[in-house]
Every structure is written in C-alpha cells, then in structure tokens.
Computed example of a mutant assay.
Amino acid sequence: MNKVRASVRFRGRVQGVNFRAHTQKICRQHHLTGWVRNLPDGDVQALLEGRESDIRSALEACRRGPDAAKVDDVTIDWEEYRDEFASFDICR
C-alpha cells in the first residue's frame, strides 16, 4: 500500500462553481486527507495524501468537475507521504 502526497493545481473555470466542495466530496470518498483552497489568480490548489491509486482516481473525477466547472489543466507534483492530516477540508 504505497502512500504518497500530491500537490495539485487546477486551472480553468474552477472558482465560483462549487469546485472545492466537489473536490472535498470526491477526496473523502477515496479516503484521502488534505485540503483544497482557492488561489488569488483564479486557480484552485489542493494537497492530497493517501494511496497513489486512490489519488489518481480522485483526480480523474475532479478533472471532470461539477457541471458549471471547466478544468483546462491539472498539474501534479508528487511528494513523500507525511501523514499530516486527519481529514480532507476546504480552506477558506
């Protein structure tokens, strides 16, 4: 069970379209921990921890986003697992 950490940036129409709540729901369904937040430049950033296969599945679902969202690009930086979080939360 290979656990990893992924720092993710979503670009496109991802703010004001319920994207963070959508991401939180998906990540919790995949038993991931971490957080998601809006960035001042209009992007959304997320930090996920868990099994690599679960992260990949969750990110594929997040890429589709809620109906009003349009994800144009996703960048992922893979990092070493740190077991830093107890849940997956929305940062405001």
Rank of each mutant, 00 (worst) to 15 (best):
Q45A: 08
Q29L: 11
A61Y: 11
T23D: 01
A46Q: 01
G50S: 08
L59M: 13
A46F: 02
N18Q: 14
Q45D: 06
G42E: 05
R56I: 01
G34C: 09
Q15T: 12
L32Q: 04
L48W: 06
R56A: 12
Q29Y: 09
F10Y: 07
G50T: 14
L47V: 02
S53H: 12
H22R: 13
C62R: 04
L32E: 06
F10L: 01
R56N: 05
S53R: 07
D54A: 15
E49K: 06
H22E: 13
R11M: 13
C62H: 04
R13L: 11
F10V: 01
Q29I: 06
R20E: 02
V8C: 01
E60S: 09
L59H: 05
C62A: 07
S53C: 11
L39S: 08
G50N: 04
T33D: 09
N38C: 11
R56K: 15
L39P: 07
E49D: 10
H31V: 15
C27Q: 04
L59F: 04
Q24L: 07
G16A: 12
T23N: 00
H22W: 15
L47T: 01
R20L: 05
I26C: 03
L47A: 02
K25A: 14
N38R: 08
I55Q: 00
D54R: 12
Q45V: 01
L59S: 13
R13G: 13
Q24H: 12
C62M: 09
P40C: 11
G50Y: 00
Q45Y: 04
E52D: 13
G34H: 09
G34M: 08
L47W: 00
W35V: 07
C27S: 15
K25G: 06
G16D: 11
H30C: 02
R9E: 05
H30A: 10
E60L: 10
T23V: 10
A21I: 12
R56G: 06
G12R: 03
H31C: 14
H30M: 07
V14W: 03
G50C: 10
D54W: 04
L32F: 05
F10P: 00
D41S: 04
S53E: 15
L47D: 00
E60N: 13
S57E: 13
R13F: 10
L32T: 02
L32R: 05
V14G: 09
N38S: 13
Q45S: 06
R9M: 11
R56Q: 09
T23K: 00
R20P: 02
E60K: 07
C27I: 00
E60M: 12
L59E: 04
L47K: 01
R28P: 12
S57V: 05
C27N: 06
H22A: 10
E52W: 09
I26S: 05
